[in-house]
Design a protein around this nucleic acid. Structure first.
Length: 549
RNA sequence: GGCCUGUUGGUGAAGUGGUUAACACAUCACCCUCUCAAGGUGACAUUCAUGGGUUCAAGUCCCAUACAGGCUACCA
């Protein structure tokens, strides 16, 4: 029996040839140097922060070169696939502004001319490619059961031989086609394996855009390319898809580095040009229990889930900035020196990407968030915050949006200036920082008075101030001068330098007096500029709050 | 067991054989200051995982060891 006859026996219904598919999915008409790349997740129902990293990276390189960035769903493992997994991925990434030029846009619809973009819908395509390989004698059916393979493995472990299906361990490799046909007709169960022509004692040089050349032993394992359920394994789907979708760069997690010799071999078996590869290092963190470094784990680390950032109200731009700084060595310094530019202006290079696992540092993320939010205009911050609150804190949302201009004026304190405040690091911080500006929330109060604690003295200060000194229309300098006059009158130091020299000659200082007023109005010791707060509150509410004590 | 990859301060890191190992975050101190935040000034790696070697010269090249991660599935 010829290889062709065997191929027809195995795939009687597959009639299309590779050439047919090549015509159907022609080379993309893009300018020289354009990068076509993809993000290719499994729809398992969990979006790892590493997914964001990978998709950011892919999108950035495609965009920088006027290329294409597409989404492909790798659902060949039917056991792990969950319902609505595709929608979750699309929506999850959308929250961080990662969108695709091509690919699924819902569980059932897609954009683009190189689809289907869901692997389970590409079964016939893969099988046509498998059939081609069988015809050429580069693939064969394997009848070994899982138990048999397991036994071989145990034997290999015992005799310290290399583990895997190769050489004399590859029992079905040298079987005659007649025997193969007989067993297939007999109804025996089988899978299809790639017939490797590699020699383990020879070296193959693979190239990674980030790490450079890497030397491996050639692959001599006859790996499974078509599973019992008729779907391909990852390795095979990767070759077929990335060839047909005309991918130029494979950007993926570094756990795939070891498979490079295999993937090279598979491309070469079809005489396809090998695409470029860039393997991204994983995100890691210090394990609190062991003190060691480990990969971010979805079970142990809440910050591993992308939803974590959304719930906290961390701006997606800040997450992106953070990933860029952790991942691309020169980015941070560039950004520091180009504060007016955005991340889009930075020219990312594979060579500058980190080779080792980056340690995830929430502290640093926090800092980047502060800086980012501090530079936002007040109405922009208002819009973002209200979107966030609408989803996560409806009570405060209602209060916050009741008077838009009022809320914006609060957010605008010490903002939109050269050195803006940096007290807000995420949208969920907003309530913590400004709640006292809303009368609805100004109840059940716990005043944090400090140096001046005596009730009578507090009363005295507030009364004197409101009756003799406070004027709603004062500008800032006048306001502060009056504050000083108040101090002089009541026996407090109005000049801090003078007070520091002779602390015992006074009852306290202007700092203490201001603090009394601050706490009376806000209950807090740490607030933005008091003058601004009083201005927004207005005389009536100031009096009201003074009386409340 | 085999095969890859990685290892520069608390963290992210620059660094591609040649002066005192950039920069950022964090930390600490001081200054400024009505509080806080910010800002300013300064401190913080006698040393680049360890041990050898090559060289006039090594974080940078070579070898070995240690540690960490990955792969070694009809999972991706």
């Amino acid at each position: 029996m010829t290889n062709e006859e065997l191929a027809n026996l195995i795939f009687p219904n597959i009639t299309k040839e590779i050439e047919d598919y090549e015509k159907e999915y022609p080379k993309r008409d893009l300018k020289e140097g354009a990068i076509v790349t993809r993000y290719a997740p499994s729809p398992t129902g969990f979006i790892h922060i590493g997914a964001l990293l990978a998709s950011f990276t892919g999108k950035t390189f495609a965009k920088q070169t006027d290329g294409i960035f597409y989404l492909r769903i790798e659902d060949t493992d039917t056991k792990r696939t969950v319902d609505n997994g595709i929608t979750e991925i699309i929506n999850g990434l959308k929250e961080f502004e990662v969108t695709f030029d091509e690919g699924p846009i819902s569980e059932t619809e897609s954009n683009g001319n190189y689809g289907p973009y869901i692997q389970s819908e590409r079964k016939e395509i893969y099988q046509a490619f498998v059939k081609h390989l069988i015809k050429e004698g580069k693939a064969y059916p394997c009848f070994c059961s899982a138990e048999e393979i397991d036994l071989v493995r145990k034997e290999q472990e015992r005799s310290k031989a290399r583990i895997g299906y190769y050489g004399s361990y590859a029992k079905c490799r040298e079987m005659s086609n007649d025997e193969r046909a007989r067993r297939i007709k007999n109804g025996e169960s089988y899978i299809i394996r790639f017939r490797s022509n590699g020699d383990y004692n020879k070296k193959i040089i693979c190239h990674d855009e980030i790490r450079g050349d890497i030397a491996f032993p050639e692959n001599d394992l006859d790996i499974v390319i078509n599973k019992k359920d008729g779907l391909p394994t990852y390795h095979f789907a990767h070759i077929v898809d990335d060839y047909l979708m005309r991918t130029t760069h494979i950007i993926r997690a570094d756990e795939w580095i070891s498979s490079l010799p295999l993937h090279y071999q598979l491309f070469q078996a079809f005489n396809f040009k090998v695409p470029k590869y860039a393997h991204i290092s994983p995100l890691a963190k210090i394990d609190e229990e062991t003190g060691g470094v480990r990969k971010l784990s979805k079970r142990k680390d809440p910050e591993c889930a992308m939803s974590y950032y959304h719930k906290l109200g961390i701006p997606y731009e800040a997450v992106r900035l953070y990933l860029a700084t952790i991942t691309s060595s020169n980015f941070e310094e560039w950004y520091l020196h180009n504060p007016d530019k955005t991340i889009e202006d930075y020219k990312f290079e594979f060579k500058k990407m980190s080779k080792s696992a980056g340690l995830f540092d929430l502290e640093k993320l926090n800092n980047i968030c502060r800086n980012y939010i501090s530079r936002l205009k007040a109405d922009n911050l208002y819009n973002r915050t209200q979107t966030y609150l609408k989803q996560y804190d409806l009570d405060f949302y209602n209060i916050f949006t009741k008077d838009k201009d009022y809320s914006i004026s609060i957010l605008n304190i010490e903002r939109e200036q050269k050195k803006p405040r940096k007290d807000i690091s995420c949208y969920s911080d907003v309530k913590k920082e400004i709640w006292y500006m809303y009368d609805e929330l100004f109840t059940n109060l716990n005043y944090e008075f400090q140096n001046i604690n005596d009730k009578e003295e507090i009363k005295n200060i507030l009364n004197t101030y409101i009756t003799k000194y406070y004027d709603e229309n004062d500008d800032k300098d006048t306001w502060f001068n009056k504050m000083k006059s108040l101090c002089d009158k009541l026996g407090y130091a109005s000049d801090m330098k003078e007070y520091k020299l002779n602390p015992t000659s006074y009852k306290g200082s202007v700092a203490d007096v201001s603090m009394v007023i601050r706490v009376a109005l806000t209950t807090k010791t740490m607030t933005p500029d008091l003058y601004e707060i009083m201005k927004i509150l207005g005389r009536n509410r100031i009096v009201e709050r003074f009386n409340k004590i």
